[in-house]
Design a protein around this nucleic acid. Structure first.
Lengths: 341, 341
DNA sequence: CTGAAAGCGCTTACAG
DNA sequence: CTGAAAGCGCTTACAG
């Protein structure tokens, strides 16, 4: 082998040049044809696509990202996967973006702004095409990372009217207000609010509960039972026990999430507390199983699939540089009155 | 501006060269220092690291992947996120790999081999550092894609003794056998098996159920109720209804998954069927809420967190080229006898 | 132990 | 509408 040959780091990979050679065009033309850039003769496009198929060509995402300074990755930052809520959002986002060539990259923050900041730093280094984040509760540094990156970003679950900020969600506070009003309508006198995790959306729900009861002149701070522990069926059962022990006068409980409410319902059954006769129980989110409980659980159905789809579509528009008519999309909620209230 | 200046595509990004310049070393040395490659003078390493920190340098993953032909990404392919089982596995994998600089990339196959093949093609193009896949049920093409990529791969949930194949899981069949044997021990005479989804692991459980009853001379094919529909609490309720309508003689039901069993338990309650007096109910996986049911659900606890951790550690060894003592790691299971049986 | 050169596989910017 | 040149930001392979 001659000493003057160029050094090669063989990878065996089929490259754009291979495709171009077979199609008898330049690599640039092949690149343009494959990306569907307009302004390439139809005949050449066909030849290039055929060659690519014959060779089983798959573009190298790293090379593409390096050259174009933009990858096809879309990080989606959610607090948790153990809440079915976010799984539904993710499914919808993925279903919308994947067919268009984007890869949703799931990041779990565990409700920790520091973790989110760390994930953001890691993911932003990949020069993502877009970004989806949950709510507005983050570190100032995280906010600056997002803004400074120039990456289009849509906020999930909550709404804002702040200029230049894009969001898709519903009013957590109003939804909780509506549920509380429903319980008042039913004639319940001492309505407790039981919550866990105490993340921003939970606190907004607490606010909706308070506002409603205050307006009715019925607010009593002692009827709030708030735990920072992670939400779960088991915790719901424990909190119901505690509630009935310490506030035996309550006649209705509004749990901030359905897993708690399901646990509460099961605990009531164990304690032989009649629902809704002695105690009404209501939840939030309409998670799997809530309609199967005995009695079926009254709750608020939240539009997570719609949030996933709508946020992906909004992001798509932003990534294409298209104008977004409505930067804040309210998808509403639905009161599901069942037999537990 | 002079015509002879090199054209630049400014990106503003802080690069390795910036760090090298500040540290007064060559970029190669800076690269080696930052990657912790041994054989760099300690003093230089320190200078480089300081410079990197001062400049807030973040390596470009695309450039790194392109030059080294290897990224820090580890795709993890699971059937579903709506089953808490896989969420637990993913959490454990992420928790193990992220601190070491690897990014778990979640891929959802929806139990569809074609979808898995498609995901594999997409993710393999990123030259992942490693790969985690669920079970062994895939297309021949998918198998070849994995083998041909040379990317280290560990299989989750099931076990194999096939040479050169790495797996971490437990015996689905044996676990189901054990549960069935427990029900026999308790004296139940007509034990039904109710399953949904009918994925490979579910069918292995069915096999364990059959083998146990056959060995006891008690197998009756009419006591199997199999539905290809996705598993859910609601479906469990429906299947219990159907079972009691069409096989009123059953005195125990073994559901292939806890969501079905929970639904079955709730349906029994609605139908005023005493559990376990008139009908015993057992599940599989010990999902959230099973211990809170009324009565608490007898089930099999499966080691999903341990599977996530152990598979990540095995993959780590493979990625480092270290020998793996045990290519097939059986993490076992635990029979959880509670009050429903 | 350190470095100058070349290359990874694409796309951008400039010409024509 | 098409292409030759250069560059994206790293690391590999070779020297010394």
């Amino acid at each position: 082998m001659s000493r003057s040959e160029p050094r090669r780091r063989s990878t065996g990979r089929t490259t754009l040049s291979d495709v171009a050679r077979l199609a008898e065009v330049s690599p640039i033309t092949a690149s343009r044809a494959l990306r569907g850039e307009r302004g390439v003769a139809a005949e050449l496009v066909e030849r290039v696509k055929l060659a690519a198929t014959q060779l089983g060509y798959v573009p190298d995402p790293a090379a593409r990202a390096l050259a174009s300074q933009r990858s096809a990755v879309v990080p989606v930052l959610v607090p948790l996967l153990s809440n079915a809520l976010f799984v539904d959002v993710l499914e919808a986002v993925h279903r919308t973006l994947f067919p268009l060539g984007y890869q949703a990259l799931i990041g779990v923050t565990h409700y920790d702004p520091q973790e989110e900041e760390q994930l953001l730093r890691t993911y932003l280094a990949h020069r993502p095409a877009g970004l989806l984040v949950t709510g507005f509760d983050r570190t100032e540094t995280a906010r600056q990372l997002i803004a400074g990156s120039g990456v289009p970003c849509v906020h999930l679950m909550e709404l804002t009217t702040a200029p230049g900020v894009h969001s898709v969600g519903f009013s957590q506070q109003q939804a909780a207000f509506t549920m509380t009003a429903h319980l008042l309508d039913r004639g319940y006198q001492r309505i407790a609010f039981v919550a866990a995790q105490l993340d921003p959306r939970t606190l907004q729900r607490a606010e909706g509960y308070r506002r409603c009861l205050r307006e009715a002149g019925r607010y009593d701070a002692r009827l709030e039972l708030l735990s920072p522990a992670p939400s779960s069926i088991r915790l719901g059962a424990e909190l119901l026990d505690e509630l009935l022990r310490t506030r035996p006068e309550v006649d209705a409980v509004f749990f901030c999430n359905d897993d708690l409410a399901q646990g509460g319902l099961l605990a009531a059954q164990r304690l032989q507390v009649a629902v809704p006769g002695r105690l009404a129980i209501a939840g939030f989110n309409d998670l799997a199983g809530s309609d199967q409980m005995v009695p079926p659980l009254t709750t608020v159905r939240t539009p997570r699939t719609a949030i996933g789809e709508a946020s992906a579509h909004m992001l798509l528009a932003l990534m294409r540089g298209e104008p977004v008519a409505q930067p804040s999309v309210d998808l509403g909620f639905e009161l599901m009155v069942r037999e537990s209230s």
